[in-house]
Every structure is written in C-alpha cells, then in structure tokens.
C-alpha cells in the first residue's frame, strides 16, 4: 500500500538542500528590495560627498582613489554584518530559524547558505557602486580584481560570522543596537572618509574594515598586491568568527 502517504525516509543531498536555502534567502532579500537600496544610501553619500568635495582630509592627491575602495569595503560590512545581524536576530525571534531547525538543513548548511546569499547581494551592490565611482572619474586597475574579490570573500565570511554569532547570543533589539553602533564606530575609525588611526600593522588586525579598505585601495586603485598582513588579518577574523558562529548558533 504505497499511496500518497507512504513514508519515504532519507534526505536530499546536502548540496541541493543548501542550494535551495540560498535561493530562499535571495528571494527573501529581493522581497525587501527597498531595504537593500536604502542600505546603499550611506555608502553612496560618502562616495559622492568625500569623493568629490573637500569636506574631509584624505591621504594622497587622488580623492577618488582613496574614497571609492573605502566605500566598497563599507558596503560589504553594512550588508554582511549590520544588515544580516539585524535580519537574523528577528528571524530567530519570529521562529523562522526554528522552522529550518526542524528540517534536515544543518547548522553549517544554514550558515553557508546565508553567507553565500549575502555574498551574491554584495557583488550586485559593489558593481552598482563601482559603476557610480567610474562615472564620477575613479579609474581602477581591472587586472587586480581577482585578489580584490578574494579578500572581499574573506571579509564577507568574517562579517557574516560575527553577525550570526551576535544574532545567536543577543536579543533582536540588542543585536540591532550593537550592530548599528559597531557600524558607526567603524565608519568613523575605519579609514573610509579620512585616514584610519595609524596603528601600524596591528591596525589591520584591530580594524578589519580599515584592512579591507586598504586592500581594495592597493589592488583596485593602485594595481598592487594585497599586503600579507591583511590576508592574515582577514583570514584570521574569518576563521575565528565563522567557527564561533557554527558552535554558538541557535535555532531559537
């Protein structure tokens, strides 16, 4: 009697489970399209304000060469960290995550899907902002785009790990507050609108945003390679935060 109700145990391959989850995350992101566009408002304002006027002192003569990569790095942090921490915090309190926890989707599977979806969104945002930069006169070195992309993947993983960790440990209201505060602090001290505090190589380890921005400047604006200390810094941040998120992540 194998009618419609006959139990059929097993599970789909983890690859298709995760692919399905990535699709769902992207669909949900598209449904909040207005929030995604709004999230690009601050970076755009910084790009046009600090890039085209003398409101701040930036190192070097080429303002756009300094400001545009910084704005790209800021956008990565805004989407992968601030936006994701807030969304995931509320998803947990609404029971979305509990629903997924009741399914065969594993914790690492969900974390990977969320990070991959956020990376997809970031690529679209970066292309849009870079296009604005090009339009106002930024002249990047396209041949350096691969290392720039590599360091951006590491930064995304690190921010995403921190976002999911915070969403697991704090209540959604506290997550929103803390994520916003960190965003503002990083915007001020992260070397986006003006030079970051000079902490030497250690600065790259303390301020991941400044490290990421500098790596994008070295590659995209100047066609040089990513400093080893920055690879190490963002690699370490990514490893520690993703591991911590995988350990501490809670479905409810």
């Amino acid at each position: 009697m194998s009618g419609v109700f006959a139990p059929a145990p097993g599970r789909a391959s983890m690859r298709s489970v995760v692919a399905s989850q990535i699709r769902m995350e992207l669909t949900l992101t598209a449904r909040r399209g207005e929030a995604v566009v709004l999230a690009m408002g601050v970076p755009l304002l910084v790009l046009l304000g600090a890039g085209l006027t003398e409101v701040t002192n930036v190192p070097g003569d080429d303002r756009l060469a300094f400001v545009v990569p910084g704005v790209l790095a800021l956008t990565v942090m805004s989407t992968a960290f601030t936006g994701q921490a807030i969304t995931t915090g509320y998803e947990r309190s609404y029971g979305v995550l509990k629903r997924l926890g009741a399914s065969p989707l594993t914790r690492p599977g969900l974390l990977f899907a969320k990070t991959a979806a956020v990376l997809g969104l970031i690529v679209v945002q970066l292309i849009a902002l870079a296009a604005v930069g090009l339009a106002v006169g930024w002249r990047p070195h396209f041949e350096a785009v691969l290392p720039a992309l590599g360091i951006t993947v590491l930064a995304t993983a690190a921010y995403s790990g921190l976002a999911l960790l915070m969403a697991s440990l704090l209540r959604p209201e506290a997550t929103t507050g803390a994520a916003t505060l960190i965003y503002v602090l990083m915007l001020a001290a992260g070397g986006i609108m003006f030079a970051a505090p000079d902490l030497g190589t250690w600065g790259w380890f303390v301020l991941p945003l400044a490290a990421h921005a500098e790596a994008l400047r070295e590659t995209l604006s100047y066609g040089r390679s990513v400093p080893t200390a920055i690879w190490l810094s963002l690699g370490a941040w990514a490893l520690v935060l993703v591991t911590a998120a995988a350990r501490k992540f809670r479905w409810e």
Binding site: A8, S20, Q21, M24, T27, L28, Y94, G95
Partner: peptide
Amino acid sequence: VLQDTDDAADLTVSEMVKHLAGFYPD
C-alpha cells in the same frame, strides 16, 4: 508541526512548501 511559529515570511504559501519540499529526497 511547530507550535507558535510566527515566521513573518514574505514568501507565499506555495513558495514556502516548495522550499521545504526541496530538503527531502521524495
């Protein structure tokens, strides 16, 4: 079948069911 879920999802009913169906082999 969970008690008290309130996933304020912007997905449609059929999208959500299809999505979860994708997690199972049959």
